[in-house]
Design a protein around this nucleic acid. Structure first.
Length: 481
RNA sequence: GCCCCCAUCGUCUAGUGGCCAAGGAUGCCAGGUUCUCAGCCUGGAGACAGGGGUUCAAAUCCCCUUGGGGGUACCA
């Protein structure tokens, strides 16, 4: 039975890079019909906040991920908040101490820092020198009575540690370069390494899927698993995601938190699809897919070993694809808040003409890669054209005037204006004025929208309705009929 | 400095010794779609980091160099 976990620290908003790790854990669990667990690593009380945890859960759910065990869903291996597991780490630590696997270290952070500096300057590995490992009873007693605070360190054997990574193959580390590491901080909270090993053991994790940044922590964790009499899980270290400047993706690169993308109106399935594309390629080469399409062919071992650059343009392309195919009712609902914020429609849901809104959304969806762009695309339907000096001059020309006048004449013959009627009317205008192509459409387009670009004209007129069209044209008729 | 990981078009990738004078996607450029932008369709430019080996044969295996990334904490 496969059991995997995503174990974030609630110290900030969930980022694309981190979310991607969650996605692949989830994907792996689904692929192997296993259990996906959410565990919150909040032992760093100074930086952890409840609001980030809540946001994290919301973001993960929004992406469409679900877990079988977690702080919100419960489960038989809980609690799933490390801050509620402190006594567990404490007990294991006592056992380590009793069994001689760990010891108290009285070195102060300042001393350690100084020794690190010296090691670096002399070209030696900056490891802890294990000096508290073999204190004499006299020395121990002296430290005890002095009241100095202490950490607990794990005794690292000087051996060559070899392990197999599902993505990277065989990895080996010379542990003589590592030095005894801290498992309990002086404030009694566990270090990351210790908490992870204890929890992964107790929660019976079978596969640890995480970022490559943890690769060099892995030997330490394996040592701890051994000390816990636990067979280490299988490891899979995924390559990391970078920004355009090839540095690790971070806040500096812009809007990369999941909630930011949500606010921008990206569809979750598009984001999810894109995140999977980073580091993995579907066998059938179809880059736009539903999870169900790929779930049977997903093999974690085929993932890219090289880190990848996050490409906003490609995300926008994919997102545009999804936006074009999305259910119109859903898209319309998503668009409403943006149109309200722009002041284009009523904040009272009951006063919204939904039928008309659907037409508008449908008319402009081709030009959008995310829903927040609806405002700048759809404003032409809600306010009269603001015409520039240059356009005014264009509309005043003899040809433009003849087209506008002719079109206006056609409108007056009609009671309504369907796309078909519009096309017929334009044929009539074309015959009457002998103008065609750009010269024919552009005066009408600019008079109606104030822009040279936009959706198909017959769609615009259909949505505006005949009266509004007449009114907008009238503004630019120099000789009123 | 020390340790580890990595290296195919700008970007994401296919490629696991012959099917590769390297395929797809995105982005870019051009043409088409007899209104524009977008969309869609067609075409184009664009890469095996460099050097040594191994082999009849190397993008693929080995070594070195270079480049990138990560770690090196009482952060996770």
């Amino acid at each position: 039975m496969v059991r995997v976990r995503f174990a974030p620290s609630p110290t900030g908003l969930l980022h694309i890079g981190n979310a991607r790790m969650a996605v692949f854990n989830w994907l792996f669990a689904r692929r192997h019909k296993g259990t996906f667990i959410l565990r919150i690593e909040d032992t760093d009380v100074a930086r952890s906040e409840k609001k980030y945890m809540d946001q994290l859960i919301e973001d993960l759910h929004w992406l469409g991920l679900t877990w079988q065990e977690g702080p919100d869903t419960g489960g038989q291996y809980g609690p799933y908040l490390q801050s509620e597991r402190l006594h567990i780490y404490h007990d294991f630590c006592q056992r380590f101490l009793k069994e001689g696997l760990a010891y108290r270290c009285y070195c102060t952070p300042e001393e350690l820092e100084e020794r690190r500096q010296i090691a670096r300057l002399t070209g030696k590995p900056p490891r802890y020198d294990n000096r508290c490992r073999d204190l004499t009873d006299m020395q121990k007693k002296a430290f005890e009575t002095s009241g100095l605070s202490f950490t607990i360190r794990f005794k690292v054997p000087e051996e060559l540690l070899i392990f197999d990574d599902l993505i990277r193959g065989t990895c080996q580390f010379d542990m003589s370069l590592t030095g005894d590491f801290v498992i309990m901080r002086s404030d009694g909270t566990p270090s990351f390494h210790f908490a992870v090993a204890v929890d992964d053991t107790l929660m019976q994790i079978t596969h640890v899927i995480r970022g490559e940044d943890h690769l060099s922590n892995t030997p330490c964790h394996i040592l701890l698993f051994h000390a816990l009499n636990q067979k280490p899980p299988q490891f899979a270290h995924l390559s990391l995601t970078m920004g355009a400047d090839r540095t690790l993706l971070s806040k500096r690169h812009g809007a990369f938190s999941i909630s930011e993308y949500r606010k921008l109106g990206y569809l979750p399935e598009a984001l999810l699809n894109y995140m999977i594309l980073l580091g993995w390629a579907p066998r059938n080469k179809k880059e736009k897919f539903k999870i169900d399409d790929i779930i049977d062919t997903f093999e974690i071992g085929t993932m890219s070993k090289a880190s990848s650059v996050f490409d906003q343009q490609k995300l926008d392309w994919l997102s545009g694809q999804y936006t074009r195919e999305a259910d119109l009712e859903r898209l319309t609902n998503l668009a409403i808040p943006y149109l309200q914020a722009a002041g284009f429609i009523s904040t009272d849901e009951n006063k919204i003409d939904r039928a008309k809104l659907r037409l508008i959304v449908d008319a402009v969806r081709n030009n959008m890669s995310c829903v927040s762009q609806i405002g700048q695309e759809a404003d032409i339907f809600f306010k009269d054209a603001v015409v520039s000096e240059k356009h005014l001059e264009f509309l005043s020309s003899e040809i433009s005037q003849s087209v506008l006048l002719s079109f206006y004449g056609e409108l007056q013959k009609l009671a309504t204006l369907s796309p078909e009627m519009f096309k017929e009317a334009f044929v009539a205008v074309q015959i009457e004025t002998k103008v065609n192509g750009k010269g024919l459409y552009m005066p009408v387009r600019i008079a109606l929208t104030g822009r040279e670009h936009g959706p198909e004209l017959y769609g615009i007129t259909n949505i505006l309705g005949i009266e509004a069209c007449k009114k907008r044209i009238e503004r630019f008729l120099l000789v009123k009929k």
